[in-house]
Design a protein around this nucleic acid. Structure first.
Length: 889
RNA sequence: GCCGAUGUAGCCCAACCAGGCAGAGGCGCUUGUCUUAGAAACAAGAGGUUGAGAGUUCGAAUCUCUCCAUCGGCACCA
């Protein structure tokens, strides 16, 4: 150990040492408890950004902590190396996607190593390698065998910018998940995965992970799956033998139905309209709806409700009443049955629709009150209440105007009416989901080819397992025309049918990259397996994942898909558990100040490094100037670090300036992990200052630590200062350990700073220290260094070595310190005394002082007596160790 | 619009779960020591209607209710 702290030198030294000794390389070990710590694998865009640094610093802190507690810790990393940017680079700059990707991986691997993240690098995987994606294809075939994969022509979400299909999850909110371009609908033949078969399990199994996942992620998944319980009802179409089935969650409102409304793409519609004189009008309307739908709409914009009467009539199965059949633009084809019964009195959308087309409104639910008559309802009102009702009444209540069902409460009526419908054969209880099947075809080159062959005589034939992987060709035409680039590669496309041997064509779509990430962390457990995606026993040893860490943006994409994939793997016997991740932690974004100038409506952003900030005496930014020209720039809000806001900070530069340990330390300290983190360079200075301070203590005391007694000297030999230090040490151990378990890294680090401050208060000098002093100092410094290891491993190793321990922290049987409860307790407390709730005095007492003693001491206190004199003490409240409150009158 | 989270010193945050002195830690600011000066280091200090209001309680940042603000998710899902 040098006298001065040189981060770069120390970090290189220990990174080399770790790699040489393979200290993070793990195998199954029956002797030790195991722990699987996982961070979301990065897309190899070329450069690590601060969000990555945060993600991996969190995982690394946890991994080190668990290792020091004696766990066998699996901490792997890999690359989500298929996907758009590589192909965009190919289109724009003509580079080879593979070469581009692999260069990026090499660079980013170097960055991760420079950060000193403790991965088992032997387990590194990359999705774009045939060794990996052959198993994507294998899973595809297994799903196909089980009927979980099918091909269908359907309207799909299309990103016009990326020229490819997106899944529903990837186009949530009507925009592309990558580029935020509004998506349009397009009719395409696509491969789908029947994730909807697992909808109920995906919901139900949430009870297994409720404890370990953030509530908001589960809520988001629940909303996305969108289970809804209701009923199907068949309406006969008059003068035909056809029926239209509707889905409703409010069967209790059926007597209020004034129409049936079909989606424009309802399957029976053309058949029903075949002989109608209104057919041309209806067809024109349908065409209009389609056209509107294929336009990209402003996300969130509400479309005006429109409809057209088909002239058809339907019969209400409950009342026998005849109601018109409409087609409406607001009815979704893909949800429920693509048809609804319109009950304007009790549904906002139907109400709006009825208002627009002046359809009758009939109230059939009245609010429940304790009065004899339902309130808010006048039975004398006419059948049509479109004038009286100002808005739909959507609450549950009591049925009115509903024939024999009148008087029943909604709740009971819904059950009984569904039962009745079932009995009479015109309906049944039903459950529908908002979740749709997962469209996985992508019209892209840089992905795993779909292992299917189109044969003119045999139809669609799966590639035999023995022929996997279907390898990507090295080149294709990257023209971004919306057609799969693989179409342009004859040697890829042309093949022979595995069944009949005739000339056939390969499928030219590739798989959604979310397929790759659905099972990658199982592969880490057995990364080089040639015969299977992984060995069951190896996976069952490590998995499920104990702690998963990543961004909340994957709450409903990756995290839903991977839960589904896990259940499928269970169903084909690969594993025996249902939920892949026991504990999930979602980290906040890294945000930074933005600076810009606006000219002609266009903002030009400047990097914080180019800007000089002026603050007032309270530290608030008052103005900012561009260093280059000295002229003012606008100070913008904090935003996620990005290219477009030009507020990114390069981790490499930070590491060069402050060292990896200080960067990691700051990023964990600056905010709770789930909060957004405001990047402020001054904060790293603080982290570096702290590390230097600790390092200086270690340097000064290293010999005293080495020569300190191994066994605690007699209690009586400790000075007051040494006792105080020991108290702080053990209190810090308690706090750091407790907070680490909860992933509260910021408070852990604060506790370490306190311990270091306490050490600074320790009056003894290394030269003059007694045995007891040296013991207390060693205890404090060794605990401090060990507890610092998860956050700043390099400097900790260096100091640990400085204390005379050979071979690295993980070499021996070094363990996380354990707090002595007795020592962690304070010897004497200062207890506030309140008079009528206001602080008036303080008394001193030991922690175990009895209530009685505290009461007496407080009442006898001079200051207290001044307040109680001449008044009557009504009550004395004593909270042991905390406070005495005297109520006087 | 619906659901959820958050709101504490100039800033990041702790204390909230389980009511008890409003402050652990860091940044920034002020002053001092040191220094030719600055930086660093060390020492000291200032800074508050805990978003607003009401309720419960001897006592509320903490529990309950209402409102406001910010952020996130969903948004014709029948």
């Amino acid at each position: 150990m040098d006298e001065k702290y040189f981060p770069e030198k120390i970090e290189e030294k220990w990174q080399k040492s770790w790699a040489e000794r393979g200290v993070f390389e793990v195998e199954r070990d029956a002797e030790r408890p195991h722990y699987y710590c996982l961070e979301m694998l990065p897309y190899p865009s070329g450069f690590l950004h601060m969000g990555h640094v945060r993600n991996y610093s969190i995982g690394d802190a946890l991994s080190w902590y668990k290792r020091l507690q004696g766990f066998n810790v699996l901490h792997p990393i890999g690359w989500d190396s298929f996907g758009q940017p590589a192909e965009q680079a190919a289109i724009k700059r003509g580079v080879n996607p593979r070469a581009w990707t692999e260069d990026n991986i090499n660079h980013m691997r170097g960055q991760l190593q420079r950060l000193g993240i403790s991965y088992d690098w032997r387990r590194e995987i990359a999705a774009h390698t045939p060794e990996y994606y052959r198993w994507d294809q294998w899973f595809f075939l297994k799903m196909y065998e089980r009927g979980l994969i099918y091909r269908r022509m359907s309207p799909v979400n299309w990103c016009p910018k990326e020229q490819t299909v997106l899944s529903n999850e990837q186009s949530s909110g009507g925009v592309c998940w990558r580029c935020e371009t509004p998506v349009v609908k397009k009719d395409l033949e696509q491969w789908f995965v029947r994730i909807t078969d697992y909808a109920e399990q995906l919901l139900d199994d949430m009870k297994e992970i409720e404890q370990g996942w953030p509530e908001r992620v589960l809520t988001m998944q629940r909303n996305w799956i969108g289970k809804s319980v209701g009923a199907y009802l068949d309406f006969c179409i008059k003068d035909t033998d056809k029926k239209v089935r509707v889905f409703t969650t409010r069967i209790d409102t059926i007597y209020g139905a004034n129409a049936i409304v079909l989606a424009a793409e309802h399957p029976h519609l053309s058949e029903l309209m075949k002989d109608s004189a209104l057919k041309p009008d209806v067809d024109a309307f349908i065409a209009g709806v389609r056209e509107a739908r294929n336009r990209a709409t402003e996300p969130g914009a509400d479309e005006e409700k429109e409809g057209i009467n088909t002239g058809l009539q339907a019969v209400n199965p409950f009342s026998g009443e005849v109601v018109p059949v409409w087609v409406g633009n607001y009815v979704l084809t893909e949800y429920g049955t693509g048809a609804v019964m319109s009950v304007p009195a009790h549904d906002e959308r139907d109400f709006e629709f009825a208002q627009k087309y002046t359809l009758p409104v009939r109230q059939v639910i009245a609010p429940v009150t304790h009065d004899a008559e339902p309130s808010g309802f006048d039975p004398k009102l006419g059948v049509d209440q479109s004038i009286e009702m100002k808005e739909a009444f959507t609450d549950y209540g009591v049925l009115v105007n509903s024939g024999e069902w009148s008087g029943k409460l909604s709740d009971a009526a819904m059950k009984e009416m569904a039962g009745f419908a079932h009995e009479k054969g015109f309906g049944e209880m039903a459950v529908t989901y908002r979740l749709r099947d997962w469209g996985i075809s992508r019209q892209r080159f840089w992905g795993a080819p779909i292992p299917m062959i189109h044969c003119p005589s045999c139809g669609i034939v799966p590639v035999p397992e023995k022929d996997l992987p279907v390898e990507l060709p090295t080149h294709a035409d990257f023209t971004a025309t919306g057609q799969s680039p693989l179409e342009t590669v004859p040697e890829f496309v042309n093949t022979n049918c595995p069944k009949c041997g005739a000339h056939a064509r390969r499928d030219t779509d590739t798989m959604d990259t979310f397929v790759d990430s659905s099972w990658y962390y199982f592969r880490y457990c057995d990364p080089h397996n040639q015969d299977a995606p992984f060995d069951k026993e190896k996976v069952e040893y490590w998995a499920p994942v104990d702690q998963y860490i990543g961004g909340v943006e994957h709450a409903v994409m990756h995290l839903l898909y991977t839960r589904f994939w896990t259940k499928f793997m269970r169903d084909i016997g690969l594993i025996s558990f249902s939920e892949p991740v026991k504990n999930l932690m979602t980290q906040g974004m890294v945000v930074a100040e933005t600076f810009y100038r606006e000219e002609g409506g266009a903002k030009t952003y400047f990097n914080p490094a180019e800007v000089d900030v002026v603050r007032d005496d309270k530290g608030r930014i008052t103005s900012a100037r561009l260093i280059k020209d000295g002229q003012a720039v606008v100070v913008g809000p904090f935003e996620k670090m990005s290219k477009s806001a030009n507020n990114g900070v390069d981790p490499n530069e930070m590491i060069s300036a402050y060292g990896a340990d200080a960067v990691r330390m700051f990023i964990l300290f600056a905010a709770p992990v789930e909060n957004d983190l405001r990047w402020q360079e001054a904060g790293i200075d603080g982290a570096l200052r702290f590390l230097r301070r600790v390092y200086t203590f270690a340097w000064r005391w290293r010999d005293a630590v080495k020569s300190a007694p191994q066994v605690a000297p007699d209690a009586s030999t400790f000075s007051a200062g040494a006792r105080a230090l020991r108290h702080e040490t053990h209190r810090a151990i308690e706090r750091v350990t407790r907070d680490l378990e909860a992933l509260h890294f910021n408070t852990c680090i604060a506790a370490l700073m306190e311990l270091s401050n306490a050490f600074g208060q320790f009056a003894a000098t290394p030269e003059s220290a007694s045995d007891a002093d040296r013991f207390a100092a060693r205890e404090a410094l060794e605990a401090l260094v060990l507890m610092l290891t998860p956050f700043a491993p390099h400097i900790s190793e260096e100091m640990w070595e400085g204390f005379g321990h050979e071979g690295g922290i993980l070499a021996g049987e070094v363990r996380w310190p354990v707090a002595d409860e007795e020592l962690a307790r304070k010897e004497e407390l200062e207890i506030p005394v309140q008079i009528n709730g206001k602080l008036r005095a303080r008394i001193r007492a030991t922690p175990d002082a009895s209530e009685e003693h505290l009461r007496e001491t407080a009442l006898a206190d001079e200051k207290v007596r001044a307040w109680t004199e001449g008044s009557q003490v009504v009550k004395v409240i004593v909270v042991p160790q905390r406070l005495v409150n005297i109520v006087v009158r």
